[in-house]
Simulated scan of single mutants.
Amino acid sequence: MLELLTAIVDDHPIVIEGLKTLLANEENLRITEGFCTGADLLAYMSAQPLDLILLDVTLPDISGIELCKKIKEISVSTRILILSNHTERSIIMQSIQNGASGYLLKNSSIDELRHCIAEAVIGNICYSKEVMEIISRPDRNEMQGAPRLTRREKEILGLIAAGKTSQVIGQELFLSPLTVDTHRKNLIQKFGVKNVAELVMAAAQQQLLSGSAKWINQ
């Protein structure tokens, strides 16, 4: 049986090590590397092709959803399985549109992961059971067009709407500008918009900004 050259991409090294351990005895997989950034993965792939990538959505330098596109530009045959805690239907569907072969939540079982790997290898799209339920029954907020935001995302969205830069937001929330930029990209993705101006407008239309959006109409 041919071994699939496999890489794991996640912003938490402990997750990478955990997956390596979990998959160490899989006869059809050979874990070649683990990466915490998209840039490191792409640099590696420029010299070494990969058969399979287990990819998180949240990375410090690029959204995993956007990274799917870049991976496919380098290697169309590489299969990508998203492993994430994000449960938004829009993120799941955008991942598949950008080239992922499947989407699993991080609480999925090893059997679900094995199954999705097997399906991806033969060219099928596969989801974990919980993701299938999300796809078939979008929640009320998503049906109304309002994405589900974390408390941190709401804070950053309000500060973005107030016209503050990533540097200033980072200082106020004790975060690095890079972390703020990652949240900014995730917000743009969740709202399905192209830039910050459209993000603020969409959030204002959905009444998610309260008083922080008053400057838009001034």
Rank of each mutant, 00 (worst) to 15 (best):
M45C: 08
C116R: 04
E133N: 13
R30D: 01
P60R: 07
Q171S: 14
L29Q: 09
L113K: 10
I31E: 06
R114Y: 13
S109A: 10
N25V: 02
W215R: 13
V196M: 01
I96M: 09
G158P: 00
D56W: 02
Q207K: 14
Q206D: 00
L41Y: 07
I65Q: 05
I8T: 02
L22A: 15
S128D: 14
I96E: 04
I110T: 15
M45G: 06
F174M: 12
V15C: 09
D139Y: 10
E133L: 14
E33H: 13
S84W: 03
R148H: 09
G163P: 05
L187A: 05
E73G: 01
H86M: 12
Q207V: 00
A146Y: 00
D40P: 00
Q205P: 00
V15H: 04
K154V: 07
E153G: 08
V168P: 01
S90V: 14
S108T: 14
S46I: 00
I110R: 14
G192Q: 10
T150F: 04
K214V: 08
L23K: 05
L178E: 13
G18K: 07
A161N: 05
I92G: 08
L67C: 11
S77K: 13
S210W: 02
K185I: 01
I53C: 06
I110Q: 14
A162L: 14
V9M: 06
K20A: 01
L22F: 08
G192H: 08
L50I: 12
D11E: 12
I134P: 03
M143V: 14
